[in-house]
Design a protein around this nucleic acid. Structure first.
Length: 959
RNA sequence: GCAGGGGUAGCCAAGCUUGGCCAACGGCGCAGGACUUAGGAUCCUGUCCUUAGUGGUCCGAGGGUUCAAAUCCCUUCCCCUGCACCA
């Protein structure tokens, strides 16, 4: 299979591209513009990525065949640190990286070149286009290819940021971001491109609480500022040396590690001395908010690297605090060592502050007692801490001990209390990472203050409302996302849009020290594809792509002669470009993986709404799920990480395309399993064989089975048209490669052999295959002596006049009869020599018709039918037999749906039809068939079966 | 934490919006048969239980609405996914 498929793939791809059927030029047809969200250039892609891309090509091909002028451009996203970090690892000759390159087919002599980030970018730009997208036969308009580090793209992005600024959507404020102390800003994410450890770390916000002690402040870091009303004491680790820090006018006592982290976030932090933890114990400090003196007590759980190394104690709600108090009370020795008065310690009572359903007034006290925890290191403490917090935060209310906040929900009170303390100067904020993060250079990563960070203000109310309103008019799939996107747009807030450090991308137009970050420069770009071909072909020069030029072609602002003068671009060309933009835009579908739902898509929508006029706002979004591997199998040589070209060679591109389309709905993850793809390759072989069989048909006789097959084909194209209105490729695949195949097999079994029918069917069928398996479709189309490409032939449309309901009902009837017969044969185990069918007697048909008629009028019931039947003399004479049958028929008919009744009401002569089918039946079963009407008194009926005959269900006798 | 999704016969996976051709598409696997020197190829048949066919039970569990529920409502158990300086 593989060499043959590779040959025809190459052959047809060359022909398509030579004929430029993939290139979109403005013309009189309606347009259809579709893209997939371009991939980031982070290295080789795997077979999972091709899933969504294939959907786009297949949808584009289908729309093209439906008469649309389809624009399908592609590009890549090189912004960011992916290429830089890959180049760096190659430069270091990292063995894993080199291995990875080689096993993906990177030529050895390329590797030394790939130590330059921009070389990495251009190398993978070639790989993606040639080894992936062309290899899969995509009809993308290659002339429009763009990559985000190209200079022209940069111009476009700078223009976009000018527009955002004009709209008042760029804002500047301080920001706290992860940064290596040495290398500057880094990304902390699970893929760990910048860092060597700590990818799953999160940024946590501590509220720093200041406790006045003499002329200094003990500063505790807490994650639960709302609990300040329950403070009873203060914890210090006696074994830790703390530092005294001059912080503006104040002197703080904190741990040394926390000082180091804090110094990246706060100005004017200076160590002026140290103090031993043990020296602090026994003193009293004034707690914030409650302004009471509370004792400083010893606690080993206060770790210097967590928070500030100092902890305020809220024993009612914090299990660590309560257990430590309990232990200290019993620890005479410790109390003696630190000169603590046991009476006073034992007098410390937790203060209830939060009422939570399912808990008493002091959850920590309660749970520790219940679970009989007696050890400060009991791991269950961590669990109950989380549990108390979770329940308290979501369902709890602040109680009367909490002053003005009494009665508020905890989740409301938290920020209010925090902000109140910050305003009164009793608290500050401090950010830290939830676990250790280490940069690739080996130095620690900290949270660093960026004082003048730029943001795009996606929280802007007018923008959000306009975008939400527009999104309701869009075709968004799946429908779950359509419903969900409103909420996401509401929740989508300002976003840092520029950064410094190791980063490829476009210079921020308002301050060159910043580079525009990765999400922000990839929101409006589909628009750029409408003109990128002019730059790529050299018609437009970089310096001509000015803001005035973009304003004109994208927004229609300004006058052509002026722009022509200022840029030197011919006026006609400017008009032509403007016309292209207005013709192709808006975008009809933007397809992207599910990870884009809360990142790219909302930004994509909001930027369009913010910058462009409403007629250019996008029309559709399609979200696809992933191909996954079993426990990372997809990233090993056995599974999906098999290079895409290798998989294409092994299975054939069309088999892979069919696999993606049919294996599952696009909105579910699929587990990569090679045997599945093999099955699809087999399926294609079967289709090809069946096509050959059809081609060899020479008969001239037309029978019901010919009308049946043509009717089925027309129904099929109708059903595909309907399915594709929601881009349901799976249903299309099912209809074309499974259902149609089954129909043709049935046609052949039934003795169909008509050359005209076969030609008609092939002509329709092959066109139906073109969107999903274009290479074999072209190959077969050519062998059919058809002119031109099937890829641009019209998609079959259903013809109402060729739908033959009678033939379809008759064939379904035959299949039902056979299924009954097979059932009997199976159950009895008889190898039949003789089979007799008895069709229902006339009078039963009469009852049946009456029942159908009454059902249509909505009057059918058992008594009503019986009554009606008995009003007919001829039926009445049959007495109980007629009444019984009426009851049975009514019972049966009431349960049936309207469409089913419609089928049953199709008039067919069962006796004649079965008689005509005797040849087929005897061939299939290998027995002698006889057909009689139950009305035929002369019919042989050895077991008195004829009386069981019903309309549409003959009685059967077998011997 | 924020938001969302899902549990369907041995497995994968449709159907659920608009209740009724649903014992539940399709595929895989399995079984039997045909064709064949043979078959991992192909074609046909079967694959919940029962049965000379029109019967029973079934779509995580438990209730409800309805003439009728995999589909609607309620309760409950269990899984999963995405999340901003990462593309």
């Amino acid at each position: 299979m593989s060499t043959w498929t590779a040959e025809i793939e190459a052959k047809w791809q060359a022909k398509w591209y030579a004929a430029k059927i993939n290139e979109a030029e403005r013309d009189g047809r309606p347009k259809f513009m579709i893209i997939f969200a371009y991939p980031g250039l982070t290295g080789y892609l795997h077979v999972g990525h091709m899933r969504g891309y294939t959907y786009v090509d297949a949808i584009g091909r289908y729309k093209r065949m439906c008469g649309y002028n389809v624009l399908f451009p592609v590009g890549t996203h090189a912004t960011g640190n992916g290429a830089i970090s890959l180049a760096k690892r190659i430069k270091e000759r990292d063995p894993k990286t080199i291995d990875y390159l080689i096993s993906n087919g990177c030529p050895e002599d390329m590797i030394p070149k790939l130590t330059e980030p921009m070389e990495v970018v251009s190398f993978f730009n070639e790989v993606y286009q040639n080894q992936y997208w062309r290899r899969f036969g995509f009809l993308a308009d290659w002339r429009r290819f763009t990559s985000t580090t190209n200079p022209d793209y940069g111009r476009f992005i700078q223009w976009q940021f000018q527009k955002l600024n004009d709209a008042g959507l760029l804002i500047q404020k301080p920001y706290f971001a992860p940064a290596c102390v040495e290398c500057g800003p880094v990304a902390v994410d699970a893929s760990e491109t910048d860092i060597s450890k700590g990818g799953s770390a999160e940024t946590v916000e501590y509220t720093l609480l200041k406790f006045k002690l003499d002329e200094m402040f003990l500063v505790a870091g807490t994650l639960r500022p709302e609990t300040v009303y329950g403070q009873t004491n203060f914890w210090v680790n006696p074994d830790v040396d703390y530092v005294k820090v001059q912080r503006e006018e104040e002197i703080w006592i904190i741990s040394r590690p926390s000082y180091e982290k804090m110094s990246y976030q706060k100005d004017e932090m200076k160590i002026i001395g140290t103090v031993k933890g043990s020296d602090l114990i026994g003193k009293e400090a004034i707690a914030p908010v409650i302004h009471r003196k509370i004792p400083v007590l010893p606690a080993a759980f206060a770790r210097p690297d967590v928070g500030t190394g100092l902890v305020t104690s809220v024993p009612s709600d914090a299990p660590d605090d309560w257990i430590s108090l309990l232990l200290l009370r019993e620890d005479e020795e410790a109390m003696a060592t630190y000169g603590l008065d046991p009476e006073k310690i034992r007098a410390i009572k937790p203060i209830s502050i939060i009422d939570t359903k399912g808990y008493g007034p002091m959850p920590a006290v309660e749970l520790i007692e219940e679970m009989n925890i007696v050890d400060g290191n009991d791991p269950r403490l961590e669990d109950i801490k989380k549990q108390i917090y979770k329940d308290g935060f979501h369902t709890g209310r602040m109680n009367d001990a909490c002053g003005e906040f009494a009665g508020l929900r905890v989740d409301e009170a938290k920020d209010l209390i925090k902000n109140m303390m910050i305003e009164s100067g009793e608290a500050e904020v401090f950010y830290d990472l939830s676990e250790d993060v280490v940069c690739r250079c080996g130095r620690p990563v900290v949270i660093k203050k960026v004082p003048d960070q730029w943001f795009i203000d996606y929280g802007n109310t007018a923008l959000t409302e306009a975008t939400k309103a527009h999104s309701k008019t869009m075709h968004i799939l799946p429908s779950e996302f359509y419903n969900n996107v409103q909420g996401i747009l509401d929740w989508f807030r300002e976003r840092a849009c520029v950064r410094q450090g190791n980063w490829l991308g476009t210079e921020f137009p308002f301050d060159p020290k910043w580079i525009i970050e990765a999400i922000s420069d990839s929101t409006l770009y589909p628009l750029y594809y409408t003109i990128s071909n002019y730059y790529n072909s050299g018609i437009l020069r970089l310096e001509q792509m000015t803001d005035e030029f973009f304003d004109l072609v994208f927004l229609g602002k300004g006058a052509v002669p002026d722009v022509s003068n200022s840029t030197g671009i011919e006026a006609d060309l400017i008009r032509r470009i403007r016309d292209d933009v207005s013709y192709f835009y808006p975008l009809d579908i933007n397809l992207g993986g599910k990870e884009h739902m809360t990142v790219h898509f909302p930004a994509f929508l909001k930027n369009h709404v913010a910058v462009l006029p409403p007629e250019f706002w996008p029309r559709g979004i399609f979200v696809n799920w992933y191909v996954t591997g079993k426990l990372g199998k997809i990233s090993k040589s056995k599974g999906g990480a098999e290079p895409i070209p290798d998989a294409a060679g092994r299975f054939g591109v069309d088999a892979l395309r069919l696999y993606y389309a049919h294996i599952a709905a696009p909105f579910a993850d699929v587990e990569w399993d090679e045997s599945n793809i093999e099955n699809y390759a087999t399926r294609i072989e079967r289709v090809i064989r069946t096509v050959d069989e059809l081609k060899s048909m020479v008969g001239t006789e037309q029978t019901i089975i010919d009308r049946w097959l043509i009717s089925r084909m027309n129904n099929r194209s109708g059903s595909i048209t309907e399915a594709m209105s929601d881009y349901d490729l799976r249903r299309m695949a099912n209809d074309v490669y499974f259902e149609t195949l089954a129909d043709i097999r049935w046609y052949i079994r039934r003795g169909g052999n008509n050359a005209d029918t076969a030609a008609r069917v092939l002509n329709m069928w092959i066109r139906m295959m073109s969107p999903l398996t274009p290479h074999i479709a072209e190959e077969m189309w050519e062998k059919l002596d058809q002119k031109g490409f099937v890829s641009i032939a019209p998609f079959p449309e259903p013809r109402a006049e060729e739908i033959d309901r009678h033939a379809e009902v008759a064939e379904a009837y035959l299949a039902d009869v056979m299924s009954d017969l097979n059932e009997i044969l199976r159950v009895t185990g008889i190898s039949p020599r003789r089979v007799i069918f008895y069709t229902a007697p006339e009078w039963k048909h009469d009852v049946f018709s009456i029942a159908l008629e009454m059902a249509d009028e909505g009057k059918l019931s058992i008594p009503s039918l019986t009554k009606e039947v008995m009003s007919h003399d001829a039926l009445k004479r049959r007495g109980k037999e007629a009444a019984d049958f009426a009851r049975k028929t009514a019972e049966d008919m009431i349960r049936r749906s309207e469409s089913e009744r419609k089928r049953l009401s199709v008039d067919m002569d069962e006796l004649e039809y079965l008689t005509d089918s005797i040849d087929f039946l005897s061939r299939g079963i290998g027995a002698k068939f006889e057909i009689y009407s139950a009305d035929d008194a002369s019919a042989p009926d050895p077991q008195n079966k004829a009386r069981a005959a019903q309309p549409h269900r003959p009685a059967i006798y077998v011997e």
